[in-house]
Design a binder for these strands. Structure first.
Lengths: 348, 348
DNA sequence: CTGGATTAGTTATACGTAAAACCGGGACTC
DNA sequence: GAGTCCCGGTTTTACGTATAACTAATCCAG
């Protein structure tokens, strides 16, 4: 009547041992599942029964101390309000659960104080770290911790981690440009996230590469922040700037693409009739917009899963394959033949 | 040259003590910050210096075991890919960091195994839990853990927790209906999330209450899931069903409202000229849409913050005020005078 | 019936920290 | 000059677990 209650006194393996008439060591063996050939089935069942009756929960702090590991990983991402990273977390958490590993998120992994330095005690409570290269400011702290590290979307040429999980962003850009060039677009603008991160640098580089072979193609780059309004402003600049007006806007994310669509509409341009727009990510937002967005689908959850699996492999001392996950262009309604726009700009 | 390195052997307080020529207890006192009047400034500085040189990090597992608490809270939400909850997390993590508390998320709080029951060992590793009432299936497990509990968006009449943090959803509905009624709308439809959760039940009840006093008002309720397409389907049903066509769609979330806008457009109706649409949440999505969404702004981060503060207050044995946070109607472009639509439906 | 193997446990110890209890020696009080 | 107090530490212990090392009893081969 009491032991099931909320404020029942902490019940330890010793209490269970006493109730079952065995030693604490036996309880530990049984609860740890490694009692085969060490404890009789009768005794094991008695222990399990006593543990159930008393509501025994092994004390993880004690176990962690004893074992010197926690089976807990830290996931470092720039912001969960960016749905891409929320999905990365989802994938990582799923893979972790399959292996009996826990996930904590930066910031506040273990909150050792009001100050920063969230990794002050990481060595003791974490077994490893998975970090997005976009969370740049945290990387120094991470390295300081000296923990096994898996990087997400980081430069594979300059591996600073035990393993790296990438997306084949360059291929995504190629697919986008192939698509737009095939539709007859020659004047392109790149609405480029102004974050100093590998994933965005790759977009810029791959775009330049892809257009090198296209005769008569021009590319204008407009830097932008990360939110809708930043995308709108950058797109307005791209569409009203000097030189030939771009007929297609390649945006570094769906969110920026949403802003680009708004910019077009404000300028009296129709999407996709007057200007095509493409995104990156394929978030739910892409189909919430009107018209639905042509975009590059990034397998966010797969990134999280692969990252977690790689970290677990590192922790187990196994081999780690650094991978680049494939991406896929999803053609929807925000891109169309450039010919329609050739008739000239409406009265802007 | 070595101690800063990645794989440096674990350095304990005993190592620091040896290097500084003091006892381990002194190191603990100094590092714990409670040495005033116990250790001379000279010695303290020597300890700090040795700790710095050796790269000492207190072992949290040992500390947690010793202290019997972890200063770690579990946040249970249905899904982080729902941006509302990502923002709740952000607020909770911020408040937690201010108090030196860590946050872990359900699922996989500590991953004690591949099985479910993530709370098997919660008692040992967590100090408390903050749970959204939408994560219903986890609530039983949580209670099982016997940890201090703060509920978010839960029925204040039936407090099942040490504290509750709510949003004044009923007031939000009142503001929406006042707004729409003032615009002349009489035929309303409620695109209602079909989740059995307090926050959605309140919307339905408050809507019925608000319309009771409005002469000639009709209300049609269409249940929907949680994503854009569910909203679209429900809105299509609402707009094409029998009876007078609703001139305003009150949606339980911005995501559903996005679907409702799509439905209207597919049916050849203009928003807001032919049909007004309102949302709930005020996510970035609300301003990404065209037209921008009239919606009820829910202070998601404030919910997380208040929840964490309440939990910390509970843990500290202090008083806890159960609160309902105010919400605010944000009028944008998706609602307009009902008169425009009176001319009759277009040829659907 | 003896002695190595096997079974079914027990005893003892270590993980690293926090803090209670203790203690030597000066300073101050009366 | 003796008692008291405070300063600046040290010694010791406990937190709850996992496991290495040990042991008592049984079994069976020779």
């Amino acid at each position: 009547m009491r032991e099931r209650g909320a404020a029942a006194a902490r019940v330890t393996s010793r209490d269970v041992a006493h109730a079952a008439g065995v030693s604490q060591a036996t309880v530990s063996l049984v609860m740890g599942g490694k009692w085969r050939g060490r404890v009789s089935e009768r005794t094991a069942e008695a222990v399990r029964s006593a543990a159930r009756d008393l509501g025994y929960r092994p004390n993880l702090a004690a176990r962690n101390l004893r074992l010197g590991r926690t089976r807990t990983a830290l996931l470092v991402v720039p912001a969960l309000t960016n749905e891409f990273f929320a999905r990365v977390y989802t994938g990582a958490a799923r893979a972790a659960a399959e292996h009996g590993v826990g996930v904590v998120l930066y910031p506040s992994p273990e909150g050792t104080g009001p100050a920063r330095d969230p990794f002050a005690s990481a060595r003791a409570t974490l077994d490893g770290v998975i970090a997005s290269s976009m969370a740049a400011e945290a990387l120094a702290d991470i390295r300081e911790g000296g923990l096994p590290l898996v990087m997400l979307d980081s430069d594979p040429e300059r591996p600073e981690a035990a393993a790296t999980v990438n997306l084949d962003i360059a291929d995504g850009i190629r697919q986008v440009t192939d698509h737009l060039l095939a539709l007859g677009h020659r004047h392109l603008a790149h609405i480029a996230a102004d974050i100093d991160s590998w994933t965005f640098r790759v977009r810029a580089r791959a775009l330049a590469d892809a257009l090198r072979g296209a005769a008569g193609a021009t590319l204008r780059t407009e830097p932008a922040g990360l939110d809708v309004d930043a995308g709108r402003q950058a797109a307005e600049r791209a569409l009203t700037g000097p030189g030939p007006r771009p007929t297609a806007l390649i945006c570094d994310s769906d969110v920026l693409a949403a802003g680009a669509c708004k910019a077009a509409r404000r300028l009296g341009l129709r999407v996709p009739d007057d200007v095509s727009v493409t995104g990156f990510d394929d978030l739910p937002l892409a189909t919430a917009l009107e018209p639905e967005l042509t975009t590059v689908r990034l397998p966010a959850e797969a990134v999280g899963e692969a990252g977690m699996r790689a970290l677990i492999a590192v922790l187990d001392g196994g081999p780690v394959a650094t991978r680049a996950l494939p991406v896929e262009l999803v053609v929807r309604a925000s891109t169309a033949d450039a010919g329609r726009a050739v008739s000239g700009p409406p009265g802007v």
